[in-house]
Structure formats: structure tokens, C-alpha cells
């Protein structure tokens, strides 16, 4: 088992090398401007003078979406071990999971009714 993880690790290392390799090749190949200017490093804002910093406050619905993602993913994660043993354990596992999912879907109905995920 560990050997497979080591293989995956080696795979990731090779992909890292590729990314760094491209950046390295570009470092060697790319041109350098003779004259640098402040305007060149201004943030792109369609030709306008950048107005303030880019970091701004976002709407709370982003947070709500992330929250629901975590909750639903937790649900899915619990379903993975269930999926593996479903055949083996039979009807009892099936009923347990169905009730698990149904209770969660109640929450989904509530979200829908309250329009908490309305994205306008």
C-alpha cells in the first residue's frame, strides 16, 4: 500500500519538476526590457488608474456556499465506506444509509425553502 503512495509522490515530484522546468526555461529564454517604467507594473484596470487596492470585501453568500460544500461533502465521505461494504452487509446497510441521506435531504429542502443559496 505504502508503495503505491510513494509512486504517487514520485509522480507529483515529476509534475513539480515540469512546472519548475518551464519557469526555468522561460527565465533563460525571455527578453528583458531595456527600460522599466512604473506604468508597466501598474495593475491592469482597462487603462484606468487603479483605484485603491484590489482586496475588497465579498458577499456573505460565498461563505454560505463553502459551508454547504463542507456539509454535503462530509455526507458523501461517509457514503464511501458504506458503498464498499454495501454488497456484503445487505439490506441493513441499505436502510441505514437511506435514512442517513433522507435526513440530510430534509436539510436540503430547508435550504431551498429559505432560498439561502439564491445567487443573484
Amino acid at each position: 500500500m505504502q508503495s503505491a503512495w510513494l509512486s504517487a509522490l514520485a509522480f507529483l515530484v515529476v509534475s513539480t519538476l515540469l512546472g519548475l522546468g518551464v519557469l526555468g526555461a522561460a527565465k533563460a529564454l525571455r527578453v528583458r526590457a531595456r527600460k522599466d517604467s512604473r506604468i508597466k507594473h501598474l495593475t491592469y484596470e482597462c487603462g484606468e488608474q487603479p483605484d485603491g487596492l484590489a482586496w475588497m470585501q465579498f458577499h456573505a453568500r460565498y461563505y454560505v456556499v463553502a459551508l454547504f460544500f463542507v456539509l454535503f461533502d462530509v455526507e458523501a465521505v461517509f457514503l464511501f465506506p458504506w458503498a464498499v461494504v454495501l454488497r456484503e452487509l445487505g439490506a441493513q446497510a441499505f436502510i441505514a444509509a437511506v435514512s442517513f441521506v433522507v435526513v440530510l435531504m430534509l436539510g436540503w429542502f430547508y435550504v431551498l425553502r429559505k432560498e439561502a443559496l439564491q445567487w443573484q
Binding site: S3, L6, S7, L9, A10, F11, L12, V13, V14, S15
Partner: peptide, 15 residues
């Protein structure tokens, strides 16, 4: 071939 070498070889070829 060790697991690392296996992964690296496959990684290089596959990538």
C-alpha cells in the same frame, strides 16, 4: 524497481 522509481518513470512518460 522501487516504488519511487516506478512512479517517477511513469510520471515522466505519462506527463
Amino acid at each position: 524497481m522501487s516504488a519511487l522509481g516506478h512512479g517517477a518513470l511513469y510520471g515522466a512518460v505519462l506527463i
